[in-house]
Design a protein around this nucleic acid. Structure first.
Lengths: 240, 240
DNA sequence: GGGACGTTTCGGTCCCCACCGAAATATTGC
DNA sequence: GCAATATTTCGGTGGGGACCGAAACGTCCC
């Protein structure tokens, strides 16, 4: 370590919190990026609606977010689809959300829409709502997961169950991200499954077409095939 | 899961990114909170200097940060000492920093000051500079730590070595925080030790008075006792 | 008590930025 | 080519907030 050989001149740097924070400080931009947190790609038109602004304002907001490396754009025909610049952005913002206050969303007048959300939806990139809670309940009840110090850890039988559903637990453990964490469900007030495992299960269920995203919003529906598959794989009866 | 008993009315909430982001969006406030990230308590007077503003502006900034629950205040005589509101704030901002660009700091004209920082300093709550890098080098060289998927994991001999230095590895593993991560050193361009272990080692060395914080800034000095202790405990020769 | 110092409140100025409408540019489908 | 739609650029307006100096309030120490 005492190697005092010729070293390039000192350059001390510091993280520029303010630059990125300024990007999130606008309600319109915050809403846009929050809508992208679960990994979807949305057009400028859709994101304008998300941010409650007109197209011109949305265009400038999106350009700023791209400049700040938080999102990237993928032109597709006359649309331009925006998505998160990388998984690290989602991870960092998920952590950031831990110190953010929560505000009630009162814009769900239609109770059928609220009910659909409450039944099953995504929370960033994992499953929430009654379905998400039920899933975690099943995992714990069958001892596929057990409480561990940061979140949960998977048992041998859990690993087999997950493998049969197309989830490679060992690959997940190699991720930097917290393996399996508890995430408090806002409608159910009980925990659902987050972290790398929560995201992987969601991806696997989407891949098998056991669940599908509703066209807009965060709602999720369970397909007829899903009802059968879920009851066989995880021994749960999906909620109505 | 099918327990459809009488449930209170639905309340859907969402994280308000914008509210907290607005607090970090001002360069003055960002600098202030960054200065508090390593756990120190600083007075309003000192934080005004950190943020390069006069006392009135600093006072308003600090009031806003307190209102936003990012910091808390502890009156002490005619001073008011400000500190982070909790460890979760430090953890969340450490993650947030991962997606922030880094800007060079050119205000270190006095090369002796720059040299001191380059020698040993804290990076948030763990050790950096030549000393921090040397520490990680020693841990890897003696195989007390080995590369693992998220960061590093400790070996049996490493655990013994750390215990003799006053660090309880098992207690650290129970923390939610990433156990031991690699953090790129800005002056050395090589990794030093971050995460829960990095913080715990720093605390242990401060407790034994092997290192001391310089009165201002992030610099750290190694005490005479530290030179002896460090060479015995970790088999490293501290940098000049 | 009185001076010194740390901190906050108040009043006022200035600038940045978020927004819009109108118009320009790009792409699709007929 | 032409109409329709998606997106961006431009010019201009308005509001919020970041800052300062002056002054008020609190605390310490002689």
């Amino acid at each position: 370590m005492g190697t005092e050989t010729s070293r390039p001149k000192i350059s001390i740097v510091r993280a520029d919190f303010a630059a990125v924070a300024r990007l999130l400080a606008s309600p319109a931009r915050a809403a846009m990026i929050e809508a992208l947190l679960d990994g979807r790609s949305l057009s400028a038109h859709e994101l304008a609606a998300v941010g409650s602004v007109r197209a011109p304002a949305a265009s400038e907001h999106l350009a700023a977010l791209v400049r700040g490396q938080l999102i990237r754009v993928r032109p597709q025909g006359r649309h331009r689809l925006y998505e998160l610049a990388g998984k690290q952005v989602a991870t960092a913002l998920e952590a950031f959300a831990q110190i953010c206050p929560t505000t009630p969303v009162s814009s769900l007048r239609a109770s059928s829409q609220a009910e659909a959300l409450r039944s099953a939806r995504t929370c960033y990139d994992h499953l929430a709502g009654r379905f998400g809670v039920a899933l975690l309940d099943a995992f714990l009840e069958h001892r596929w997961l057990v409480r561990s110090s940061p979140g949960y850890s998977v048992t041998a039988s859990g690993q087999r169950t997950l493998r049969s559903a197309g989830v490679d637990v060992n690959a997940l453990k190699r991720q930097r991200r917290v393996f399996a964490r508890s995430c408090l469900d806002w409608t159910e007030r009980r925990p659902h499954l987050g972290g790398a495992l929560g995201a992987a299960v969601t991806t696997a269920l989407l891949d098998r077409d056991w669940i599908r995203r509703r066209p807009q919003g965060r709602g999720v529906v369970i397909t007829p095939a899903g009802k059968i598959g879920l009851s066989q794989a995880f021994r749960i009866e999906p909620v109505s």
